[in-house]
Amino acid sequence: MAVIARGRVAPPRALMLALVATVLVVLAGVVCADDLHHFDDPALQSRYDALTETLRCPKCQNQAIGDSGSPIAGDMRRYVDRALRRGDSDDDIRDAMAERFGDYVLYRPPLEWRTVALWAGPGVVVLLGLLAIAAVIRSRRGEQAPALDENERQRLETLLSRHDRLDNQDRSDQ
């Protein structure tokens, strides 16, 4: 009996512990990711947030530096912090990062000859699709269904009248 009683008491406590552990884990993640870079000036803070969201961590496959726990992302956040405090512009900071780590770290790559396909590609594809639709519509315009000959017309009539009959029968059945 005692065992069963204990079994009944234990789950809530285990549940509480699990809950506390979950909250701690989540909080730890928040603290780690942020590194506690804080600016008194809200304008600087929002620039910092925007930059760390749009610079890509070079070590990770697809994470912003503001979102990554890798050491290099921490170094880059520190650089952004220091550069903002000494008055660098956003472009200065982005250029400095691309100079070291390549365009890879820019989530918005610059428009160059090399990247024309990247920027223009989607527009070109949509345009081609619209042209194709226009071509199809144009070729179908003026097209008429071929006229029925005498046999076909008769067959159509019998089919239709049969359909009407069945329809009426259904209704009277109900």
Partner: peptide, 12 residues
Amino acid sequence: EGSLGFDLGVYG
């Protein structure tokens, strides 16, 4: 501090 590494674009 990894300062030279940073300027070299070393990420690991």
